[in-house]
Amino acid sequence: MTSRTQSTFAPPVMEARRWLNGVSFPPDRPLINVSQAAPVDPPPPAMRAAMAEAIEDAATHLYGPVLGLPDLRDTLAAHWSAHYHGTARAEQVAITAGCNQAFAATLTALCAEGDEVILPTPWYFNHKMWLDMSGVTSVALATGPDLIPSAEAARALITSRTRAIALVTPNNPGGVEYPAETLRAFFDLARESGIRLIVDETYRDFDSRPNPPHDLLSIEDWDQTLIQLYSFSKAYRLTGHRVGAVIADITLLAEIEKFLDTVSICPPQLGQRAALWGLENLGQWLTGERAEILDRRAAISDHMPQLTAKGWTLMGVGAYFAYIAHPFADPSDVLAPRLVQDAGVLALPGTMFMPADDPAGGRQFRIAFANVDRAGIAELFARLAALDWPLASTQRTA
């Protein structure tokens, strides 16, 4: 007998951490960890002070509303409306214990056993894991060298069992920012096909574009097709406090509420209060955080030529991620543990983001640079450029 959890793979980040066991790193060559996209710095001091005050409020330690604190729902709806030049109402917002729970709750509300959800590849592995554990088939939508999915290619994958298409932009793992016209094409396809379009915008706050990334919230009755997911973790360094959100129609939120009430009863109260304080007070600070991430993105591009000369390819970069193709003979899942020992770099192989039968994952790595500054990026690229592993035959003949 196979349980639900046995139907999927082990958590990739935890698997990668095991590659560190028994490996030591000298002080002059410390580990460069680019395996996880979670800020390691704590929230800014002013937010921590506000959280300390909230700790003294007795209500912080009690159950709250299943769909989240009303003030947070209202404020997020106002921010969402302003950012997208559209309309979102508080009753269309649910707060969740992190964005992964937002995805899980949404898919549970949408899907039954044997249904299908289309995921562009490379995909975010936790999305694939949840669908596996739910008995829902993940239908892989291959992307080209630019990692941008095609709505027309997705059209050919839609069947009577398809319930949704799930996109992540800026993308995890690829880093690419989906163009507004791409999102509009997927929205039109989903509406025409009677399915839902899920857009996970966990990294929205680090999008490089000065204008709204899409206009979907300005479409009449957008909530009958579109579901947006969000995370406060990356913007406000609240990863350990687990605060995310779903923006969708109220009928779907009523179904999501059943899931949330059963699993977590309510989102963590302290994290919600911190998220609300952040929305109300940290706009300028977040602008600075975005500028720093954009500078790190620029550093990736600045240093990429030394890898390009060695046969590497930059497939995508943006938000917290760079997605790169390597030139070596062995696949990335074999090379990743060796990368720890030979270069002092912990990175996730592309095989963790691709179907097992897709060989493209073996040529790829994800670099998560949220915790690596410009100087660290320079050192990272120097270490990668110094690798002298055997090249793939196509590289040798070139």
Results as ranks from 00 to 15, higher is better:
residue 281 N to P: 11
residue 241 H to K: 09
residue 259 F to P: 06
residue 296 R to Y: 04
residue 398 A to D: 05
residue 93 V to I: 14
residue 313 T to A: 04
residue 113 E to W: 05
residue 318 G to E: 06
residue 212 P to T: 06
residue 131 L to T: 08
residue 191 R to A: 08
residue 261 D to Y: 02
residue 398 A to C: 08
residue 245 A to C: 01
residue 324 I to R: 01
residue 254 A to E: 01
residue 265 I to E: 12
residue 94 A to D: 02
residue 355 P to D: 05
residue 58 A to N: 09
residue 111 C to D: 01
residue 219 I to N: 13
residue 17 R to P: 02
residue 237 R to Y: 10
residue 318 G to Y: 08
residue 71 D to F: 04
residue 303 H to C: 11
residue 359 P to L: 04
residue 304 M to P: 01
residue 170 P to W: 01
residue 110 L to F: 00
residue 292 E to D: 13
residue 57 D to C: 13
residue 242 R to W: 00
residue 26 P to F: 02
residue 104 A to R: 12
residue 273 R to V: 06
residue 82 A to G: 08
residue 310 K to M: 08
residue 128 K to S: 03
residue 43 P to D: 13
residue 377 I to S: 07
residue 269 Q to N: 15
residue 130 W to Y: 10
residue 343 A to C: 05
residue 318 G to F: 10
residue 229 L to R: 10
residue 249 D to Y: 00
residue 284 Q to T: 15
residue 143 T to I: 08
residue 23 V to Q: 04
residue 23 V to S: 02
residue 34 V to F: 02
residue 28 D to P: 03
residue 7 S to N: 12
residue 70 P to M: 11
residue 210 P to Q: 10
residue 298 A to L: 14
residue 314 L to Q: 09
residue 149 P to H: 11
residue 282 L to F: 09
residue 327 P to L: 07
residue 134 S to H: 13
residue 325 A to W: 00
residue 388 D to Q: 12
residue 250 I to C: 01
residue 184 R to P: 02
residue 234 K to M: 07
residue 81 S to D: 05
residue 177 E to W: 04
residue 186 F to A: 15
residue 97 A to F: 05
residue 220 E to W: 13
residue 308 T to M: 10
residue 185 A to T: 06
residue 398 A to G: 06
residue 157 L to S: 12
residue 383 R to Q: 05
residue 210 P to L: 09
residue 286 L to H: 10
residue 280 E to P: 14
residue 257 E to N: 03
residue 266 C to Y: 15
residue 23 V to A: 02
residue 298 A to Q: 15
residue 140 A to Y: 15
residue 390 P to G: 09
residue 387 L to H: 03
residue 67 L to P: 00
residue 246 V to H: 00
residue 155 R to N: 12
residue 395 Q to N: 05
residue 202 T to H: 07
residue 257 E to Q: 09
residue 206 F to N: 09
residue 100 N to T: 14
residue 214 H to E: 07
residue 235 A to G: 05
residue 34 V to A: 08
residue 68 G to S: 08
residue 21 N to Y: 07
residue 37 A to K: 06
residue 85 H to V: 11
residue 8 T to C: 09
residue 207 D to R: 11
residue 363 R to Q: 04
residue 23 V to W: 05
residue 246 V to Q: 00
residue 339 L to S: 01
residue 96 T to I: 11
residue 135 G to P: 06
residue 153 A to C: 13
residue 25 F to R: 11
residue 90 A to K: 06
residue 55 I to P: 09
residue 315 M to H: 05
residue 66 V to C: 02
residue 137 T to N: 14
residue 179 P to Y: 02
residue 132 D to L: 07
residue 293 I to A: 12
residue 27 P to Y: 01
residue 40 V to K: 15
residue 237 R to V: 08
residue 176 V to M: 05
residue 398 A to N: 03
residue 2 T to L: 14
residue 19 W to A: 11
residue 173 P to R: 09
residue 120 P to W: 12
residue 106 T to G: 08
residue 295 D to P: 07
residue 22 G to H: 06
residue 19 W to V: 03
residue 229 L to S: 08
residue 63 Y to W: 12
residue 87 T to S: 09
residue 256 I to P: 00
residue 129 M to P: 00
residue 181 E to S: 12
residue 316 G to K: 04
residue 371 N to P: 04
residue 244 G to F: 00
residue 33 N to I: 02
residue 40 V to A: 06
residue 1 M to V: 06
residue 99 C to E: 14
residue 219 I to A: 13
residue 139 V to I: 15
